[in-house]
Design a protein around this nucleic acid. Structure first.
Lengths: 186, 186, 186, 186
DNA sequence: TGTTAAGCGAGACGGTACGTCGCGTCTTAAT
DNA sequence: ATTAAGACGCGACGTACCGTCTCGCTTAACA
């Protein structure tokens, strides 16, 4: 019966929030700054996003370029191509900042993962798709489950992001592919 | 000629800082609160730790229980034992909180890694030690370097911590060991 | 042709406004609160009372019990009776709060006096009436004008309300009457 | 043992507060504005004046020009001179605004009177002084107490301020003096 | 064995951001 | 066309911490 939340205001504040995050990181992220840049009132921001994290995640999500599943015809080809596509998210300044901030936020508050599952369902869909295709083609073991696949394919990036982020640009994709194939076919 | 920094004050503030972190997480960590709990003046805290992060890391480090390198005589045995020892850092509430906060801080500011290398040299020494021993015993390939070893051994934990922390307690260590052996011997 | 403003809504909002003022004083009076308590929409309130003060005064007016002119046959008797009747407006908690707020609002914004003259014409009519009667009966000087009469009769209450409100309940009406008679007969 | 409250900051904020009150009245008075104009931080203002009213009163007090007791040798002369001295506080824009705001604030919250008695002791000292002198000279009745004297001398101004502030400039001081003498000598 | 520079606790200082409240205006759906 | 509901931009609220500063005192190294 009353006036609905304005999608216009929402769009402006997400755009501004993205802006702020890329400028200053999540540390340094401020509702006041989002209000100032977007021209949207602080009260309105709180009306749309009572939890600051929700705004942050909506914004971060907009900056991460999730890779689509490649189809090269072979396991090795698919893996190499897929890794090449996701690599920029960890090495390019912009993508990396957003991605890292997202992870940091989740590490700090694991409940974010569940709360925002919807945000990840779409982008995460590449790996389930690849997994199914490889199993259909009989290229990998049938008893690899989804979580294990994530562990094998994204694990190295997760680890390096944490202990040695500067080593990411020099990552040896071919060697990585070989190690992944070994595990997937076991 | 003048008076040196008091180790007594230093100890009190690190203890209080640890306290605060376990209470409130790194988000929620405040110098004011450390001052209040320790009875040490803010001025003194800033004199000892001009960078807040240095105090935080000193405190976090005190809560993480770094595993020592086991020596069971076999690659599989060492791996299984080592994984069992580090697992609590990811599953126990207290250890997990501290560990995650540490990672989040590094993700947020990669310079922390270099700046605080000293803090990690000791705890990280288990893997270099194991790596060397396994290579000496000829149980694994000679061309596995340290970073790759970290990737193989810690990668799965890193990945799960990020995308699926609730799955950590149910991790299948034996299956994990087999996948690690495959990669290490390649 | 169009629908007239609803007297029903008007009554509900004045009732709620009175309620709010007695609860919280004029400081603490909010349109939002009136809307909430009355169930009347804010838009409607603003349509009826574009100036908030008008609503406040309408409400305050409802709580002040204006004394009627007594007729005891003698100047002293009339004065004593009239003072007895108006005293509660300065001493009783409810009446006092409303009365004071009314005055405070006028001090703050003298234009309120003219703007709301209508509200005061009726209640103020006791003194003009008494003045005329006393002059007709030849009990007081013919050259006392209305403002002077107010000054003489209400002045002491005004002064005490401001500098010493706690002394009001112990006011000596007989002494007061004597001083008033002196002035009125001069 | 710690750093004392800065009198410098205090002076700046009272000056700015006075400024704000004369600009905007007590309605329209804002801590934010005082902070902006004074260059003093909001936190510091709250440190000095946890109750906003205390700041307001300190500021108002600085703008009111309290009359000193005149000594002309005669009751009528003293009264006329004293009234002439206090009149500007009710008629001049600046003095009137401050004076009225002060009264309005007290009407709204009578506890202010007690809480700030000290502020008024000095300025109010003219009337006690005059009262004593007149009684010593035998010019007025011995049983006029202080409150009654206030009532007689300030009452007319209080009343007119409230019901008819625009009539103050045209007040007939001589007639007023006669009425006061009548009462004081009764 | 004083002298004295630096450390110490306490907490005030100028700031920035917080999350909330009330304003007066507006948009919507339902009488 | 009026209403109840409530979102909107705005600006002030009073609080929490920030990192710096001023205090008066204590203490250890050097003369």
């Amino acid at each position: 019966m009353a006036r609905p939340l304005s999608t216009d205001a929402r769009d402006k504040m997400i755009a501004a929030a993205t802006d702020v995050i890329l400028d200053r990181g999540i540390v340094g992220f401020t509702i006041d700054e989002v209000a100032k840049r977007s021209g949207v009132a602080k009260t309105t921001i709180y009306r749309h996003f009572p939890e600051t994290d929700d705004l942050v995640l909506s914004a971060v999500h907009a900056t991460v370029d999730y890779a689509e599943a490649p189809d090269t015809g072979s396991l090795r080809g698919d893996l190499a191509e897929f890794l090449r596509r996701i690599l920029p998210n960890f090495t390019d300044f912009k993508g990396r900042a957003a991605h890292y901030e997202l992870w940091a936020a989740q590490l700090r508050d694991p409940s974010l993962i569940e709360r925002n599952q919807a945000l990840f369902d779409a982008p995460q869909s590449a790996i389930p798709l690849l997994l199914e295709r490889w199993q259909d083609r009989g290229e990998i073991s049938a008893n690899i489950d989804l979580l294990t696949a994530f562990e094998i394919i994204d694990g190295p990036f997760a680890l390096r992001s944490i202990i040695s982020p500067h080593s990411l640009p020099t990552i040896d994709i071919d060697a990585l592919v070989e190690r992944m194939v070994l595990q997937l076919q076991a």
